[in-house]
């Protein structure tokens, strides 16, 4: 199939971004990521984009496709009307073309220090062999930043911890793995923490791996309301 792409282009030093149009011939099963890789290979060698796993596990290929946050590697071109507009994620700052400032994501995410491994929940009936106390798996959050891009609060409050960080916090409260959940709850119990969210659910709608940050935020609030008052609540009675 022959498809039309409108791609956001920006390089440091430009006064503003522009859109370039590319026509691409693709197999019927192609994803937006494959299309962009073809465009870079055959038409625009200076187009910068991030990709790694090609199956929704690394989280590098997040972008806005026809206005919506998606992983390019999981978005079939055949599903989309022409022209297909591809833009970088919001709220992280653009470095070059579709590449955003990834360190800005980790600045807040790493506050939580959530381990990468968690208990495995499926298949439920499996019994680990001798020597393996419990089956484990990698955490679902792939650090893609889609939720940050979609969140209206992140867009207006630069201090907001944001959906990915709050979801990671809830994972530690849910399964502490040797860490102290009270310290995590104290961290998110802040006007720029879990109380800042509007619960409009945009984050959960765009999350590609079912992390459901909005639900995590509700759970954090519930845990804080149930827990004995923390120090920060006493200091900031406005949001107790």
């Amino acid at each position: 199939m022959r498809r039309k792409f409108r791609v956001f282009r920006y390089k440091p030093g430009w006064s503003r971004h522009r859109y370039e149009t590319y026509m691409v011939d693709l197999p019927d099963t192609a994803t937006v990521l494959e299309a962009l890789i073809h465009i870079r290979r055959d038409q625009a060698p200076d187009l910068t984009l991030r990709h790694s796993c090609l199956h929704g596990s690394c989280g590098t290929c997040g972008m806005r496709i026809n206005g919506r946050e998606r992983l390019a590697c999981l978005t079939p071109v055949a599903e989309l009307p022409d022209p297909i507009t591809v833009e970088p994620l919001y709220n992280l700052g653009v470095v070059s073309d579709l590449v955003v400032d990834v360190p800005a994501f980790y600045e807040k995410f790493t506050l939580i220090e959530r381990p990468l491994l968690r208990r495995s929940e499926a298949p439920a009936q499996g019994k680990p062999p001798e020597g393996i106390p419990a089956f484990t798996r990698l955490e679902s959050c792939i650090e893609c930043g889609l939720c940050l891009s979609a969140c209206p609060v992140v867009a207006t409050d630069p201090y907001y911890l944001g959906p990915a960080t709050l979801a990671a916090a809830w994972r530690l409260v849910e399964e502490p793995r040797g860490k102290d959940p009270a310290a995590i709850l104290a961290l998110v119990d802040d006007p720029h923490g879990c109380w800042r969210c509007h619960l409009a659910m945009e984050c959960s709608e765009v999350c590609p791996t079912g992390v459901h940050p909005a639900r995590a935020i509700v759970s954090l609030r519930a845990a804080l309301s149930a827990a004995p008052k923390t120090l920060s609540q006493e200091e900031n009675p406005t949001h107790a």
Binding site: T48, L49, R50, H51, S52, C53, L54, C58, T60, V99
Partner: peptide, 11 residues
């Protein structure tokens, strides 16, 4: 040339 691990490794 691209993002790190964008060759064979990430895939």
């Amino acid at each position: 040339r691209g993002e790190v691990t964008s060759g064979t490794t990430g895939r």
